[in-house]
Design a protein around this nucleic acid. Structure first.
Lengths: 211, 211
DNA sequence: TGCGGGTGTTACCGGTCAGTAACGCTGACA
DNA sequence: TGTCAGCGTTACTGACCGGTAACACCCGCA
């Protein structure tokens, strides 16, 4: 949604965004909820209030749409990350704790950042990597770079908070977060083990900062 | 199913198992490596050295094969679990540590239990839940029961080792394990954060046993 | 007034999907 | 000798997939 009324649309319909944007928004929702392979371009186009022909005027192929979907979800993720960490700009530990706490909120879709956006099915990029064929280096490259950046950021935060083994702590925090996303696929709402991440992360941080 | 040369096959071909078994074996490999939706019954039948018609003589539908695949992978998992924990029958902490250490070995496919079985793509059941449509209660039920059992076992081990908050510790350990499986999809071999699980799990256990 | 970009519509292509019908062969067993 | 289960083979259905061709329309802009 949001989507701003694109840069160059002086008059334009007030609540009818460009076709390309409608398609991408719809694709994001359907891909996330049902998986990439389960959703055809025909279904996306129809759901977006247009048709397949108009779809192919905006995207060269379904693969291009998928790539756009992945980049879009990645952008949303970093937006969430930055919003959550911003209030604790020079306290790396509280940044991590804020992220962890927000993961829990996200799991029960109560986050302010993702206001009623969609019921949580965990990590869009991670789930996509189940469906991406191994020889598709373009798509799997996007996912890999994304996960590598998460890892880099968490390791950096661990280093900044003075952890004894920052890489180990960063990776451990990543495992907890990824585990939360993954189990979210199987356990509805907050019935899964996600809630344990709050205490676990704090205990790990304590252990790495102690004596 | 009984696998091996079924009860009533006195002579029988020595190295040519029944069609049904060949199909199931092939399906397990292909589903795990490429995903469920990506592999058609035709491909499975051909790879198993037979054809689609013979396939449908053994399985009423693809969904039934998928269900069998999930149950098979689950059985393999518990077999692994029991093998790894057996040597430390009355030391719950060492059981957990053995499991954790074996997860690392598994990630770099060096486990004795899964000798050269397949390059690791994490948890078969978890990955399947990405592709299972939400209204398919049969398949998603299998996955849910499986993950719930993992959770139950880890919580029980945490309780047996005298943790202060056994459910929290059990769930935290589960998050670490699931995170290991999940990230294994993105990071090849042991380049990912999986290795951190060893120290992280021990630190968490220590924290829950202290005081 | 005319032009042209963005869009909707219909029909089509070749390929693949899950699933079925019908027939023929072989080999164990009685 | 006959039977019958197990398996291979070919050909088929109807639906859907990703992707394309050709044409009509509307509307802002010059």
């Amino acid at each position: 949604m949001a989507a701003k009324s694109s840069a160059a649309a002086p008059s334009a319909g007030p609540d009818k965004p460009r076709v390309r944007d409608r398609i991408l928004d719809t694709a994001c929702e359907l891909f996330y909820r049902h998986g990439i392979r389960a959703v055809g371009v025909d279904a996306i186009a129809n759901e977006a209030g247009t048709n397949k022909m108009s779809f192919y005027r905006s995207f060269p192929s379904k693969d291009d749409l998928v790539a756009e979907y992945l980049r879009d979800q990645e952008r949303e993720y970093w937006r969430w990350w930055d919003e959550v960490t911003a209030p604790h700009a020079d306290d790396p530990r509280r940044q991590v704790e804020a992220l962890i706490d927000s993961v829990i909120d996200l799991a029960r879709h109560k986050s302010k950042a993702f206001e009623g956006c969609k019921t949580s099915r965990g990590c869009a990029l991670g789930n996509a990597s189940v469906e991406i064929p191994e020889d598709n280096e373009r798509l799997s490259g996007i996912v890999h770079a994304y996960k590598a950046e998460i890892r880099r950021r968490l390791r950096r935060l661990a280093r900044e908070m003075g952890a004894r083994e920052p890489d180990v702590l960063g990776d451990a925090l990543m495992l907890l977060m990824e585990g939360s996303y993954y189990t979210r696929l199987t356990f509805p709402d907050n019935t899964g083990p996600v809630a344990a991440i709050a205490k676990a992360a704090r205990a790990l941080i304590d252990a790495h900062l102690a004596g």
